[in-house]
Amino acid sequence: MSEQRDLVLDIKNLTKHFPMGGMRDTRKVHAVEDVTFALPRTEIVTLVGESGSGKSTTARLISRLIEPTSGEVIYNGKDVLKTQPGGASLEYRGDIQMVFQDPFGSLNPAHTIGYHIERPLLIHKKVSGRKALKDRVHELLDTVGLGPADETAAKFPYELSGGQRQRVGFARALSVEPKVILADEPVSMLDVSIRVGVLNLMKRLAEDSGLSFLYITHDIASARYISDHTNVMYAGRMVEGAPSDTLVHEPAHPYTRLLLSAVPNPHAGLRTQETQARGEIPSLIDPPPGCPFAARCPHVMDVCRQIMPGAVTIAPHHWVRCHLYGDGGESPLPNAANSVG
């Protein structure tokens, strides 16, 4: 976590506790706990994790669809939670855009594609005049590969396929000329053959348009495909972060290794693989102290059940939260790099 990089977003100790809802029930769901990571300008950074890991909640906290319990969201050097306590400013809304997982749910069935893209342009006063508005809508649809644009603009969402709808989602996000796009599982509900097209679109946008992406996924292979840096989340906490290639080839945290061993991977040939851990993600309701992975961890020690390990840097840009790496020194697990294929 070097300081000299140009960070567009710097997230520090982000935490969200949801109340259970009952009048007397004071318990809280610890959906996101002490999440810290950075998004350098024009890079793609991934949050990978299973359902319930808090990765989507993290994106919604950053986009301020929900308000954090505590923590800092530093955008261009300013903590927006402090400077805009009453909710996101229009400027922040314009700069931070979001693309959603469900291409069927993220477009309003009552409006045309054109309407979906016009609205942000009008709200943020990006164009003036009907002609300019129409031209810009067409231009955006062309950018995301949805030509012929005037035909597409007149269509309703149900007339498009899932992949096309997801492209509309990107066109909409792009319309306000944002600096950051938070892409929450943008391909997981798309058919396999069109996923790559959407991932490539993201790559192209990051390279050509100077955009930064936070890519949220449960698919660690796609994380490696498009992102520079990958962070692993487990039970609301961030457990490891590394350059994407390093993470796949030299995973440090036992959970990361479990995750990697579970991915079907025909490229590695058919192999018998014993998943090392059993059980499932623990309850997030008022969790006990210690490492959340302790109950499933094959290398669990006494200290794991009592104290939450701190982040330890084990290589350049590679850190892990695990007591096995207490001294920041060598991994006590010599075969770490070989655990995958």
Partner: peptide
């Protein structure tokens, strides 16, 4: 050719 590989060259 649509699956990103987990291992091997990117």
């Amino acid at each position: 050719a649509s699956f990103p590989a987990l291992t091997g060259p990117r």
